[in-house]
Write a protein that binds this DNA or RNA. Sequence first.
DNA 1: TAGCGATGTTGATCTGAATCAAGGTTGCGT
DNA 2: ACGCAACCTTGATTCAGATCAACATCGCTA
Lengths: 248, 248
Amino acid sequence: MLDPETQAIPRECGDCPIRHRAVCARCEADELELLDQIKYYRSFEAGQTVVWAGDKMDFVGSVVSGIATLTQTMEDGRTQMVGLLLPSDFVGRPGRQTAAYDVVATSDMVMCCFRKQPFEDMMSRTPHIAQRLLEMTLDELDAAREWMLVLGRKTAREKIASLLSIIARRDAALNVAGRRGPMVFILPLTREAMADYLGLTLETVSRQISALKRDGVIVLEGKRHVTVPDFNRLLDEAGDDSDGGMLA
Amino acid sequence: MLDPETQAIPRECGDCPIRHRAVCARCEADELELLDQIKYYRSFEAGQTVVWAGDKMDFVGSVVSGIATLTQTMEDGRTQMVGLLLPSDFVGRPGRQTAAYDVVATSDMVMCCFRKQPFEDMMSRTPHIAQRLLEMTLDELDAAREWMLVLGRKTAREKIASLLSIIARRDAALNVAGRRGPMVFILPLTREAMADYLGLTLETVSRQISALKRDGVIVLEGKRHVTVPDFNRLLDEAGDDSDGGMLA
DNA sequence: TAGCGATGTTGATCTGAATCAAGGTTGCGT
DNA sequence: ACGCAACCTTGATTCAGATCAACATCGCTA
């Protein structure tokens, strides 16, 4: 496992890989310089907890690289994942003292952090930040509502297909768009994490993945390496309106 | 059924019952005056559709009175409610052309609307509006994530108890706080709408309500009038961390 | 005041996913 | 190279909630 400290960390915002998608996306050069002065990086190892629900959280920030999850847990141990944080996603809520959910790094991860108070001060003086944060929050709300349909009404097979299509789509967006041929990606989650995301047990996740493989919807190499020969077929299995595949 | 036109509609923002909770909550007198000039009211009858998912939506607005639902529907007819809109809640998304969900008035309802373009112009010039909208959107995101736990991990009985406790709490917040004695409220949803909210069938909703009644968790008069003798008992049935009942 | 449609309840049966259980793989530390 | 721990798969059985079905209640209109 790589020492997270050795992962490439941008020195300046200009070099930052998430520059154009994160909460700072709309900032002008001068605004970026101010952010540059108050930002700091933190690295987390796979499995490490960033914050526990209910704990005081005196910073906010963006995922620069790696993956984290937001989860909620009931007293008896039932857990539900409520968010999957990928590079450029924002962590924390301005105007709130404590974390509402557990935040856990699922892979080695680097975050670009700001202490909450300076960030909030800056936000009130820099509409570009608040605007972008509003936009990102509205997108997350849409994603959460999409997920409510998955949790409430889809079958186990549809749930798995939905998760795979979301990961596949997002992966394609991060990499160069329009690559020809079948989609290929690495599952960033264990079977158990998938189960927590989908409101299933890990056994059901395993069975349904096996079934999709048996039916040729996906091809597996090892446990994590997935190839999707026909993305529309996968969307169909997810119960989604197909087409919509190709956006401009 | 009341003619919605006869419902009391405030003339001026100063008289408005949702003045201090809606998207305009943070506005100063002069800003309010500008909003006053571009606002208009629309009334909807119970059952009426405000917009269909995918349709062009050239306005945004706030629910002034009554209740509306946001729902998503799959091709085969499975539907999932993804939002319950109460007085002061915001409808529509700035910066988007078409509605993402069906919006349906569940009771007679009055909305305070703004054409999208003037509202967006005003938003870019009035940070108070964008600030409040961000805050409201973050609250909605929290509510959506809370709901993901309900949909993904709770039993049918816990789901019903969760819904009842949310309605009870919200009702108590709208009415004068701190009233002593048992909580009493009217269910604003049919059994079918509850089922769509909870990811259940209407039969299961009916059975679980009967069970909660049989076990003395709730008392029913007719189908819709609910009394909760012991709110902590209800929270317990919902699987929520109890206490948290009394906020300052 | 009878009839009808929307809404709600309850019972019988079925079924998809959970639970219980037994291995199989993989990768790491020693 | 071995042994252990995480992770994953597959099978047998159970069960919560869906489905299918019948009937009850209420409000409205003719």
